[in-house]
Write a protein that binds this DNA or RNA. Structure first.
Length: 188
DNA sequence: CCCTGATTCGC
DNA sequence: GCGAATCAGG
């Protein structure tokens, strides 16, 4: 694959939209994220100018260069200052406080409370294909969503791959964290 | 280990 | 110009 005008355009578009290099690479196809990043730099838009830059990433860029060092590049470390601020609210349910592996936020038991039907349905599906791992099998990267009753043998953890950073898999994250806009406001 | 972008340098 | 390999960091 080569960098045709179209592909470059899509690259520019996605990059300015804040898409990650790997996402762009996936979209384009036939290239790796390295290729994308390389192109981005060659195009001179590594600064992610354009619209608003939702990338709070700090990059002092301390590249330790062994020998040669022309170092002409003069990049101004621009800081966006404001991040998107993912407005989420953890669902609070279950009065019971189950035993949970130390460290992580307490997982609410599914209780079909204010959870969207689709997310719930999704969870049902996921729980069918869940790995059913035990407490001891939990790792940093396994979904820690508990299923069943801790007081019985009928208890295990989801165990699927976690969403990065989060303690749960995609499906469980979607029921554990909800956008505020999704919450019911029978207030009014 | 998953991911992010940044940089170098042989091609 | 290209991008794999590598680096630095989350």
């Amino acid at each position: 694959m080569s960098w045709t005008d179209e592909r470059v355009e899509l690259l520019k578009k996605m990059w300015s939209e804040g898409q990650s290099a790997s996402q762009i690479a996936k979209e384009l196809g036939g290239v790796t994220r390295n290729a994308v990043i390389g192109k981005v730099h060659r195009l001179g838009l590594s600064n992610r100018a354009g619209a608003s830059a939702p990338m709070p990433e700090k990059k002092p860029a301390k590249a330790a260069m062994p020998q040669s060092s022309p170092a002409p590049a003069a990049k101004a470390p621009v800081k966006p200052a404001a991040k998107p601020a993912e407005k989420v609210v953890e669902v609070t349910v279950t009065p019971r406080k189950p035993i949970v592996p130390a460290g992580q936020p307490l997982p609410p038991q599914p209780s079909a409370n204010e959870i969207s039907p689709e997310a719930l349905a999704n969870v049902r599906e996921v729980e069918k294909s869940a790995k059913r791992i035990s407490l001891m099998e939990l790792t940093e990267r396994t979904c820690k969503w508990p299923i069943g009753d801790p007081a019985t043998d009928d208890f295990w953890f989801c165990g699927l791959a976690v969403q990065q950073g989060k303690p749960y898999c995609d499906a469980h994250v979607s029921v554990a964290f909800q956008p505020m806009s999704n919450r019911r406001d029978r207030r009014r």
